[in-house]
Nucleic acid binder design. Sequence first.
DNA 1: CATCTGACGACCG
DNA 2: GCGGTCGCCAGAT
Length: 103
Amino acid sequence: MNFNAIYQLAKRIPRGRVITYGQIAKSVRLPGGARAAGRAMANCPVGQAIPWHRVVGAGGRLLLSEPNVSLQRKLLEAEGVPVAERRILDFAVRQWRPVRRRA
DNA sequence: CATCTGACGACCG
DNA sequence: GCGGTCGCCAGAT
């Protein structure tokens, strides 16, 4: 699969903002939906400066497992994103929406 | 070929 | 809020 489009989009996520797997899938019209986006991130290549920690589940939930979820939380808080146990508090405001031309 | 397993998400009780 | 179902899909066993 060519997940490149996803990684490119991920790179555009502004610091201090987040996006969901579902949104990504929708934005790049990824066949397979959110789950495919999840696979892409799980396969996320290191060394390409991809802010993987800014990708969360629907509703602003952190879906990773330990110990990665702890790291994600740490990274998010480091850029000013408040996180409760496994959930972004003001998700509605923190959510980033990529610019897409014409619905 | 049958199952299981995920960095998913919408729905329902 | 929580747990279960279902649609979705690629790989691994």
